[in-house]
């Protein structure tokens, strides 16, 4: 089971934050096919959040075929987003760590590293490399 959080200052609609958190967990393999998601009531009680927000998030995920709600039982994961990429993630994480160490040795601080990473990511996506 995963727990949700809400960042009221993120500017992102609360329901989209929930959608992203489920997708994130699916990508990283924290949620697998058949896993149960928290009930609407559990999320509402935990986050003090409007129930329609949770309903909207679950409906969006259901629409994308990622989860399924079974009446009387709960909501379950239908499909994972990790797929084959999960196996290669460990290796990629190791090379990223090496790069991060190098960046720190070069004197870059967290914010500079983030900026450099995001900038390079955008640049490479724009060129169609990644």
């Amino acid at each position: 089971m995963i727990t949700f959080r809400l960042d009221t200052r993120s500017g992102l609609a609360p329901y989209l934050q929930l959608v992203q958190q489920v997708k994130h967990a699916l990508r990283l393999g924290m949620l697998e096919v058949g896993d149960q998601l928290p009930t609407i009531k559990q999320i509402v009680a935990e986050l003090a959040i409007n129930p329609n927000t949770v309903l909207k998030a679950y409906r969006e995920l259901e629409h994308e075929g990622l989860i399924e709600s079974r009446p009387g039982q709960g909501t379950f994961v239908l499909k994972t987003l990790a797929g084959a990429s999960l196996q290669s993630q460990a290796g990629l994480r190791r090379s990223l760590l090496l790069w991060l160490q190098e960046a720190q040795q070069a004197g870059l601080e967290e914010e500079s590293i983030q900026a450099l990473f995001l900038d390079t990511l955008r640049e490479s996506l724009r060129r169609g490399v990644a």
Partner: peptide, 14 residues
């Protein structure tokens, strides 16, 4: 405040 709102919103689901 959080506990009060949790209880209130939970009741809307129940």
């Amino acid at each position: 405040r959080r506990e009060f709102l949790s209880m209130l919103l939970e009741a809307t689901v129940e």
